[in-house]
Amino acid sequence: MALPDTSPVAGISLKPEHFRSALEARADGLWFEIHPENYVSEGGPRLRWLDAIREVHPLSLHGVAMSLGGPDRPDPHHLANWSRLVDRYEPVLISEHLAWSALGDVWFPDLLPVPMTQTALDIFCRNVDIMQTALGRQILIENPARYVRLEGDGDEADFLAETVRRTGCGLLLDVNNLYLGAQNIGFDVQDWLRRIPADAVGEIHLAGHEADTGLGEHLLIDTHGAPVAKPVWRLFETVIALIGPRPTLIERDTHLPAFGQLMAEREQAARRLASLGTTTVAHV
């Protein structure tokens, strides 16, 4: 497959509703991100669309189901699906979450909270290592959207930094998660940013959140169902001023707007990145 030679600067999460628009879109540094779980079929139009899009735009794979923070080892069948997609689409970036979502053979389609203890850290690092070894590549780990603190929770930034140190993985810094986590459970964003290894950040996510319908502003939910909020844009500026620009992605999963609106948001991210210099893929 001939691959586009552009480096990713500002991208958009790709939805089937936008396949044609994505294929036809042209912009410097535009790239698309998919959840590999949505592309595990044997065949069909969805894979063909992605083949075509991959010929014009860089792609990244962003997993939601490896359950690296769970007590079990990564599922071999799911690792095999990942390998197949990595071979087929040669993604520029691959990532997963500090979360769990499976127990035994049952999958809970969500990103569940990992107790940030020493025991959990050992298991998490083992699982990150298994995934990186299986794929033969470094993965980026995304900081979680926090709604509660679990008994015995240690410091999130320390947990992530230690994972990077032990496994050689990189980080996917989700600015929206950072913002709403600070609001929901109360931690110091500036302190968090100082304590993570900045060089390890290989990608940034931006998304919209919504206040919980029952609990209101006391609980912000990472719905990916709204435009990026103003305070999240401001935090994004803080982040890139501090660590430098990184490939940045606009995530949107629900209340999907027209493709043009996502391109406009992506343009806002690109402008902020450009005003802070050239984007580089972090060397970690």
């Binding site: 709604y147 509660v148 919980d212």
Partner: peptide, 27 residues
């Protein structure tokens, strides 16, 4: 609830319960 640092936050766990169920329902 027993695993929460602040038991008063138990209602927040509904976020996870809702996400898991609604992901399956919408699929």
């Amino acid at each position: 609830r027993p695993y929460l640092e602040r038991p008063g936050h138990a209602a927040r766990l509904a976020v996870y319960c809702n996400n898991v169920a609604s992901s399956a329902i919408e699929a």
